[in-house]
Design a protein around this nucleic acid. Structure first.
Lengths: 209, 209
DNA sequence: AATACTATTACTCATTTGTATAACAAGCAA
DNA sequence: TTGCTTGTTATACAAATGAGTAATAGTATT
């Protein structure tokens, strides 16, 4: 008569939350934020919808957590590469640009997630804060790298000037990243990266990078 | 007994479609794409929900039309200013940058609309095409302006090189535009514009703009 | 002033959605 | 094995949503 209750596995809180978050990402990537329904999320996570509420008070909280994880993962990927690079400051800056402009940082799925969440700015509480934190974190990395380079070259360190430069460099990388994500097939990867590197070179008035 | 049927005005197709589209924009701005329900759109447009289907076969078509109008309006605003400017090529390029980095082009509502739509890339048919058209239109304007400047300065016109520069300039403006839209309160408008201008100057290796 | 056209309203329906609650079972502890 | 905690499922429900259909009234035309 009645279908047997489906079997399940009790997972750790950490693991389950990660599953739910990546399921949320998957939904958004496939069909935009509107496709991230509690049922579809649960389905992809291999879980029943009711479980969401056991880990998140409501759907909005899950979305916030997903946004936060999405952004910090991206920055982390770009920064992590630097940790294994002991070369010159110029080489480190170049590496940072390269990493930011190719997968896994630059890829369509990341843009969809980013766009979906930022489109909710001022509509969903906390989204603005998460954005600002992520933005400043990334920009600060730019600033640090630029400072390194200037020190290496024995250039004058005008704090104001360097800050302006880092805003510009950050904007350039962001702009390329966006277009690269959206039309990744339009550009040759190597050329695209070189364009980024040489543009930053121009912005900083460097001779080589 | 029965409430009287509400009175209405028969509007021209052109006017009604414009109303519905701007109502859709308003919904998205207020609460993201999920808030753009047929009822709320109709409500803001001062119309009953059923009317949507009289002008658009389904909701997706209305969304597409809204995206298309949103993007072309922005580019048009930046281009239109150029038509009234007969000055030097450098001055025209500067004006273009300035216009792109302040209201009405750079403002939070435009970013929300842009982000909402692009997040649907590959999820809603035609969105990719509308994006590509808008992107190339804007980049072509950059390319034309840069070419003008180079001609004015008697520089060599390497088509490939100019194309790369226009991609970079476009990315820079886009990147600044995005951040400016999202945190318009973080930057002083005048400083922000000057940052844009001087950065483009660096990218093109110009002495003045 | 009468007529015809159709933009617009009013109403309906089947689905989907977020959330709530109670029952169940996995797996740890004794 | 037995009992206990709680992660997980099953089910329910009210609200919202996109879409369909028929009636109505605005308005241009004559």
């Amino acid at each position: 008569m009645s279908t047997p209750r489906r079997s399940f596995r009790r997972a750790s809180e950490e693991e389950r939350r990660a599953d739910l978050i990546s399921a949320t990402q998957e939904c958004i990537i496939q069909g935009g934020i509107g496709a991230a329904t509690t049922r579809k999320i649960a389905d992809i996570a291999g879980v029943t919808p009711g479980l969401l509420r056991h880990y998140f008070p409501d759907k909005t909280s899950l979305l916030r957590a997903t946004y936060q994880v999405t952004m910090s993962t991206m920055t982390q990927q770009a920064v992590q590469v630097l940790e294994h690079c002991e070369s010159t400051a110029a080489a480190r800056l170049r590496l940072f640009i390269e990493t930011s402009l190719k997968p896994p940082v630059m890829q369509p799925r990341n843009h969809k997630l980013w766009a979906s969440f930022t489109s909710l700015m001022n509509a969903v509480p906390e989204i603005s804060n998460i954005h600002r934190e992520a933005y400043l974190e990334f920009r600060n990395v730019c600033e640090a790298l630029i400072t390194e380079v200037f020190i290496e070259l024995g250039r004058e360190l005008d704090t104001q000037h360097i800050k302006r430069l880092s805003i510009a460099v950050n904007a350039l990388i962001d702009g390329l990243w966006v277009e690269g994500c959206m039309a990744i097939e339009l550009f040759d990867q190597e050329e695209f990266i070189e364009l980024g590197v040489s543009s930053v070179q121009s912005l900083l008035k460097l001779e080589t990078l």
